[in-house]
């Protein structure tokens, strides 16, 4: 029998991965929508983007809250350490999320064609992944100080660390790559050729920085956290699979065919890398303060949460499938006829 805390962190990690994908699509779409308007190409893709995003933008946000509430619930110590240390960066992320979410609604359901709203929407799409990635950097250890029971963030170490900047860079370029490859697929489903052409160039363009940033972050991680790096090296086959899927995605994009498969490869590429990273991090949630076993909540609560997970997923999965059927795989909707 696997322990409840291990189930907890596994499910949470899967959810974080889910957020990574859906939020990347959303964040990147915001940026591309703005970029396209700035370069006067918005007539090509903006209708396509808003057609996809309008029914699902709210769901994306819930993924994030879900992960966040889950981790605090399963590991209350993380609320103490991360909460204390992340007061400022966390609040900035909240503000960016707030601007983004509400301005999306203002622009899309309220007053159309407001460039200021669109700019804020696009710009925050890149700043949010950057600010959220700070939490990931912190987990590597060395950026939090604890003195006399007061937990604080070591800003100087954080801002002067090449690791933290390489993670920020990785977050941003991954967002753009994931998003562009999804939207390429979506455009191909809609048989919207001009949009497809433009989005395909975006996807091709952002593929190279993604792999470079991943390598850079990996190298800096080896200098910062030897243990984590070694653990990941032991999982070399997962990393190799990730690179394999990346090549596969690129091949399909380059040959301009089977965009659905290309996007699935992108998803698998990130899945492998994300799990190699996560498993390598074990047993720490925050190096060296919180471990999965030491920081877990009481058994009764842990089990209650796992049961709630299962019950909740029984409701969520059919509902999400319904959303996919109605808005992603319904050819008439995608083409704009409904």
């Amino acid at each position: 029998m696997i322990s409840y805390e291990l189930i907890g962190i596994t499910v949470l990690w899967i959810f974080l991965y889910g957020y990574l994908i859906v939020a990347s699509i959303d964040f990147g779409a915001g940026f591309f929508a703005f970029y396209a308007r700035a370069t006067k190409q918005d007539h090509l893709i903006n209708r396509l983007i808003s057609r996809y995003l309008s029914p699902v933008w709210e769901i994306t946000n819930v993924f994030f809250v879900f992960f966040f509430v889950g981790i605090v619930g399963f590991f209350p110590d993380s609320a103490y350490y991360y909460g204390s240390a992340l007061l400022v960066p966390g609040s900035i992320a909240i503000i960016l999320l707030a601007i983004r979410g509400s301005f999306y609604a203002f622009e899309n359901y309220g007053s159309k064609d407001n460039t200021t709203y669109l700019f804020l929407y696009g710009a925050t799409g890149l700043l949010i992944p950057a600010s959220l990635s700070v939490a990931l950097t912190l987990s590597e250890g060395g950026f939090i100080t604890e003195q006399d029971g007061v937990v604080a963030l070591a800003y100087f170490e954080l801002f002067s660390s090449p690791l933290s900047w390489s993670i920020v860079a990785l977050a941003i370029v991954s967002v753009l790559f994931i998003s562009a490859s999804f939207l390429t697929f979506y455009a191909s489903r809609a048989r919207d050729l001009p949009a497809l052409k433009l989005l395909r160039t975006y996807a091709m363009f952002w593929s190279t920085p993604t792999i470079i940033a991943a390598l850079t972050a990996f190298i800096y991680l080896s200098q910062h956290n030897e243990r984590h790096f070694q653990n990941m090296m032991d999982l070399w086959w997962l990393l190799a699979l990730s690179v394999g899927f990346y090549m596969c995605a690129l091949w399909h994009l380059y040959h301009a065919r089977r965009y659905g498969l290309a996007f699935v490869c992108v998803m698998l590429q990130f899945l492998c890398a994300f799990f190699a990273y996560g498993i390598g991090h074990y047993p720490y949630i925050l190096d060296p303060y919180i471990t999965i076993q030491g920081g877990a909540t009481h058994e009764s609560m842990g089990i209650a949460l796992v049961i709630a997970f299962i019950g909740g997923l029984c409701l969520l999965i059919p509902s999400l499938i319904l959303v996919f059927k109605l808005f992603l795989f319904d050819a008439d909707y995608v083409k704009g006829r409904k």
């Binding site: 309008s54 029914p55 699902v56 709210e58 769901i59 946000n61 819930v62 809250v65 879900f66 509430v69 889950g70 605090v72 619930g73 399963f74 209350p76 909540t297 609560m301 209650a304 949460l305 709630a308 019950g311 909740g312 409701l315 969520l316 509902s319 999400l320 319904l322 959303v323 109605l326 808005f327 909707y333």
Partner: peptide, 23 residues
């Protein structure tokens, strides 16, 4: 943690169906 968590589930559920309802 349990009610906080279930609240998010309930909200998730609402968010999904609001999107479907509108479109």
């Amino acid at each position: 943690a349990l009610p906080l968590f279930m609240e998010v589930f309930a909200f998730f559920f609402e968010a999904i169906f609001l999107g479907i309802y509108m479109y």
